[in-house]
């Protein structure tokens, strides 16, 4: 029994301070990303969600070069570039929005690549590209933890206020407009929410895991339930499960070949998230589910329209 426990949890797992930190921070990040992610998936904004991480990274590289706090560079660049693609993408459908996001993304990443190049060639810091591309949950600045928690709580509060108008404008923008909801502002404020969520997750666990935790658990959750609030709970739960399991496996992997190196957390977490998603995709491939699925979106809209017309006639 004890031997089995040792295989599952390598000695020292529960006493290691940095593991403790990682477990805590990973949970906070998974909850916030999971909750925000449900809306990202419903609104079809996965690309922007991913791009915000790169926007932020460019801002972080800039502030790093000038010796300022990277957090503000990250947030500022995220919000400004996000607003830029929001403005340019206005009046476009989903396809066009992705293209305008792509154009802004290319420009910002170009600048980012230049800054990164300077960072690595001038400051002699090796591994900067890897850190920006992948990040690592075990090497983060502990002083960031309170910032992350505060930012996370703020994001969730913000989303709570936005919840109803955001849900309606995500499902049926025309109807939302007809009911007097300022759809453009709602979309902008949600973008800020995303930028905040992505900033805090990228800073502590890296851009790679930030995208993975934002999209993956939420995409799995919306396949498990059609209730938005329940999907958020599922999404956060799946995110936490993937993160903790990933941390455990990465800790255990110090004993795996090549011994002493350890496999990166990001590898385990991204694999687990993909695995969860695939399971939800193929386990739920029941014909009835598929039939229901294809109608869900139009049914949602219909239900809203129906209610709306009833209200208008009365």
């Amino acid at each position: 029994m004890k031997k089995l426990l040792h295989v599952l949890f390598a000695p020292g797992f529960f006493t290691n301070a940095s593991v403790g930190h990682a477990v805590l921070v990973g949970a906070v990040v998974a909850i916030i990303s999971g909750v925000v992610g449900v809306f990202v998936v419903i609104r079809g904004q996965s690309y922007l969600g991913h791009a915000l991480g790169d926007f932020g990274a460019t801002g972080a590289s800039a502030t790093f070069l000038f010796g300022l706090a990277t957090l503000w560079g990250f947030l500022g660049a995220g919000v400004i570039s996000g607003a830029g693609s929001d403005v340019l993408g206005h009046g476009h459908r989903r396809r066009g929005r992705d293209v305008t996001t792509g154009v802004i993304h290319a420009l910002v990443m170009g600048i980012g690549a230049l800054l990164l190049y300077f960072d690595t060639t001038m400051t002699n810091v090796t591994g900067a590209p890897e850190t920006i591309l992948f990040g690592s949950i075990f090497v983060f600045d502990p002083s960031l933890v309170p910032v992350v928690v505060v930012l996370g709580v703020l994001t969730l509060l913000f989303l709570l206020i936005l919840y109803r108008p955001l849900l309606l404008s995500s499902l049926d923008a025309d109807l939302a407009k007809a009911r007097g909801i300022p759809v453009r502002w709602v979309s902008f404020f949600f973008m800020c929410c995303m930028a905040m969520a992505v900033a805090q997750s990228s800073l502590v666990i890296g851009a790679l895991l930030s995208t993975a935790l934002l999209i993956g658990p939420a995409a799995t959750a919306v396949r498990l339930t059609k209730r938005t609030s329940l999907a958020m709970v599922w999404s956060a739960t799946i995110g936490i499960a993937a993160t903790w399991l990933g941390i455990l496996l990465a800790y255990d992997s110090y004993d795996w070949p090549p011994v002493g190196r350890g496999w990166p957390v990001s590898f385990f977490v991204t694999s687990l998230i993909l695995l969860f998603y695939l399971v939800s995709r193929f386990r739920l491939r029941h014909p009835l589910t598929v039939a229901r699925e294809t109608q869900t979106e139009s049914r949602r809209k219909e239900a809203i329209r129906h209610e709306y017309s009833v209200e208008r006639h009365s």
Partner: peptide, 29 residues
């Protein structure tokens, strides 16, 4: 293979992160 009805943004994000996770592993080893 994983995209449904012409929509593949979610799947793209998942595959991208998985590939990058694998890349991180390679660089680590």
């Amino acid at each position: 293979w994983l995209s449904r009805r012409g929509r593949h943004d979610v799947v793209t994000a998942l595959i991208l992160t998985f590939l990058l996770g694998t890349g991180d592993l390679f660089l680590n080893l």
